[in-house]
Nucleic acid binder design. Structure first.
Length: 473
RNA sequence: CGGGGCGUAGCAUAGCGGCUUAAUGCGCCGCGUUUGGGACGCGGAGAUCGCUGGUUCAAAUCCAGUCGCCCCGACCA
């Protein structure tokens, strides 16, 4: 039995990850094994995003896992930010190394060392590359998919001739994430800008898309950094422009990680397990055959193969669960745990009447439908479900976003409801730090277009924008 | 890095100085009956009790060390 979401959310989360077969703990501290079903979800995310990234004119590359210490040290803020969580290689081939090698916590430095050689002329720009890779960050506290010592991600890195080019890229990367998360993961996010304290080490500014999990905690789902010329200056990325002048380049970097799998679980799941949006589910339709004897099974096989043909023609990803050891009831529960969007229960009754019985994961009601009609409607049934999940997510975020007029409001809302809290903030890091200290809530971001005039909830100084507070993962 | 907990079969646990062969559930293997909401019977395989040392006539059990993991806090995609 699965723990109840409302009673113990984190226990529920861990059980879903383990029992649904997404991942398990490995024998290596802080690291997880991603199992086939979990990896299939990541793979779907990866494939879709990879196409979107290419549509932005970005090419895939691969850079070394090892980063010499001297590279990391070139950008002062960058080292400082990452130093506490870097893993170092000090020996190789049985010998002590002359220089330590970091296992990449992110690839800015190792890439930009090379970029400085690639870029000589304005004709070499813009340079846009992306890398799918594993990342090592020595986190003190780990949690399946959300925070592990090693994780998988995508990191885009671009170089531009002018500030505007970098700005536009920073925005389009974020827009791409928002689009992907909305239209494929069916999760509503709030795009905005990070406060200085939460800005990526070495960036001019950081944009993010933030969402709310079902327990009311915030989760950053993607980030896009405008690096300005900070790294260009440290790594000497210069080019001759049209006027034959030497200029430092402008850069961006942006990424999303396997953390999104965790977000997917926590944004849609229920007490029965995962709820996967059809567009990201490994199997959109799972067929559970029900039979008593060989004769019934023979008839079923024939009937189901016609269903298979029909689903294939519509481009629907499906799986027929012919396992002999499990009873139908067991399979129903198993696929609910695994979040299959649509389940077909096919037995002698369905064969007899040329119909299907289907159950959608979000409402769990059994519905009969003529086979022909079902095959005709399957695509739209799934896309309706996709829409419902997004709508539910939007409503959830809306219902759990509250406005705080005063500091006591803020404290009260955070402790009673959690969720997002909109409040004015003066921009002072001191107020931000004190609020974090006292309420555990952090500024998730400053949503785009948030304006108005008011007073900082903490110090009462004038403020020109509301920001989003939440307790976060 | 601070606080807490735990290492016994693939997994989850019981046993906490002597019950004589280390137990139970799940899982696994075989046979049979089952199969429309987590089936059942019978038979079976599987454990140097994390590791090292010590105390004792006797150690999974007590002591010391060591390694590892999990949970709670500060740092983070």
């Amino acid at each position: 039995m699965l723990a109840s979401q409302s009673k113990d959310f984190s226990k529920w989360y861990n059980q879903v990850v383990l029992d649904a077969g997404l991942a398990e703990y490995s024998s290596i501290k802080g690291c997880m094994v991603i199992k086939p079903y979990g990896y299939a979800i990541w793979e779907n995310m990866k494939n879709i995003l990879d196409g979107m990234i290419k549509d932005l004119g970005v090419d895939n590359v691969y850079f070394p896992l090892f980063i010499p210490e001297s590279f990391l040290k070139k950008e002062a803020e960058h080292v400082e930010g990452f130093d506490p969580e870097v893993a170092w290689v000090t020996q190789g081939g049985g010998k002590e190394l002359g220089e330590r090698l970091a296992l990449r916590p992110t690839s800015e430095t190792v890439m930009y060392d090379t970029f400085s050689k690639w870029i000589q002329s304005h004709r070499d720009l813009p340079l846009k590359v992306n890398q799918w890779a594993n990342i090592i960050r020595w986190e003190k506290r780990t949690r399946l998919f959300l925070r592990t010592l090693e994780f998988l991600w995508q990191e885009g890195h671009t170089v531009h001739a002018d500030e505007r080019g970098a700005e536009e890229m920073t925005n389009s990367a974020l827009a791409m994430y928002e689009d992907f998360i909305k239209n494929h993961l069916a999760i509503h996010t709030i795009p905005g800008r990070k406060s200085d304290a939460e800005t990526f080490a070495g960036a001019d500014y950081t944009l993010s898309v933030e969402s709310l999990m079902l327990d009311g905690k915030g989760l950053q789902m993607g980030t896009s950094h405008n690096l300005g010329q900070n790294f260009a200056k440290s790594f000497d990325i210069k080019f001759l422009d049209e006027k034959e002048e030497q200029k430092y380049a402008w850069q961006t970097s942006w990424g999303v990680s396997t953390r999104m799998v965790g977000a997917l679980i926590m944004a849609h799941g229920d007490d029965k397990g995962l709820v996967l949006p059809p567009r990201i589910a490994p199997y959109q339709v799972v067929v559970v055959p029900i039979w008593k004897d060989n004769k019934e099974k023979k008839n079923l096989e024939k009937y189901i193969s016609s269903i298979e043909r029909g689903l294939s023609e519509k481009g629907i990803k499906f799986f027929v669960d012919w396992r002999e050891q499990q009873t139908p009831g067991w399979k129903f529960n198993d696929w609910e745990l695994k979040g299959a969007p649509l389940r077909l229960e096919i037995g002698p009754n369905e064969v007899e009447e040329k119909k299907v019985t289907f159950v959608l994961r979000d409402d769990l009601k059994k519905k009969p439908l003529a086979l022909d009609k079902f095959l005709e409607d399957a695509v739209s049934i799934l896309s309706e479900m996709q829409k419902r999940l997004l709508k539910r997510s939007e409503e959830f975020v809306k219902d759990n976003t509250r406005v705080a007029e005063s500091y006591s409001d803020l404290k009260k809302i955070i402790s009673e409801y959690s969720g997002f809290v909109e409040a004015f903030w003066c921009g002072d890091e001191k107020c931000e730090a004190e609020i974090k200290e006292e309420t555990k809530a952090t500024i998730r971001n400053i949503p785009f277009g948030s304006g108005g005039k008011g007073k900082c909830v903490k110090c009462g100084k004038k403020s020109g924008h509301k920001v989003l507070f939440a307790k976060a993962y």
